[in-house]
């Protein structure tokens, strides 16, 4: 099978993987890891593991999905190592932009996201969401990426990040507040 440019079963020869899948895998990793060095590392680890184990790929399912499955594990591996170096946010910031001292909203949620989104709106939503995610404190963004984007159970995310459940919930609460506020400010919500 080696040496053929197009192997049976819809498989590309590995020489063409970077060209064919590089951008997609990189973008997937960038969304979750949010910096070029980490994203490249996850993609590199993915191709390396895929090269070492390419005999195990059965040809069932697409090659891209197979690589994506590997990438997901590598993204978690990289995130797990990096999260320990990330600065810890104070649990209660000096000035809370969302609530006053009595716990009342400073933000209005009278508008809500429009649903369902049309195709173009969904692309626009996604572009803006990605930018909003970039604005989060690193640990909050990592918590959101591992819990929501990767859809892992909370206890697994806690183990990966080395934090308690209540800690995780505080981070996710802050992350969602900031993301929702950002989406609202960027016009991704409408008056009902």
């Amino acid at each position: 099978m080696q040496g053929e440019s197009q192997a049976p079963g819809g498989k590309l020869s590995p020489e063409r993987w970077v060209e064919r899948y590089g951008d997609q895998l990189y973008r997937y990793a960038m969304l979750r890891l949010r910096n070029a060095v980490d994203a490249e590392e996850a993609v590199q680890q993915t191709f390396l593991a895929a090269l070492q184990n390419r005999d195990q790929y059965s040809g069932a399912g697409s090659e891209g999905a197979w690589l994506l499955g590997i990438l997901r594990r590598k993204v978690v591996d990289v995130a797990r190592r990096r999260v320990r170096e990330m600065p810890i946010e104070p649990e209660v910031p000096q000035w809370d932009p969302y609530f006053d001292s009595a716990g009342r909203w400073r933000v209005s949620w009278a508008a809500t996201m429009q649903q369902p989104l049309e195709e173009l709106e969904r692309a626009e939503f996604w572009r803006i969401f990605r930018e909003c995610l970039q604005g989060l404190p690193k640990r909050h963004a990592t918590a959101f990426a591992l819990r929501v984007l990767e859809d892992q159970p909370s206890p697994e995310v806690c183990e990966q990040m080395g934090i308690s459940l209540s800690n995780l919930w505080v981070m996710l609460h802050r992350a969602r507040l900031q993301l929702a506020t950002c989406l609202q400010a960027r016009g991704q919500t409408r008056e009902l």
Binding site: W109, T112, M113, Q115, F129, A180
Partner: peptide
């Protein structure tokens, strides 16, 4: 409502 729609779309 905003969170629910955001989570679903994301």
């Amino acid at each position: 409502r905003t969170l629910r729609l955001m989570e679903r779309e994301v």
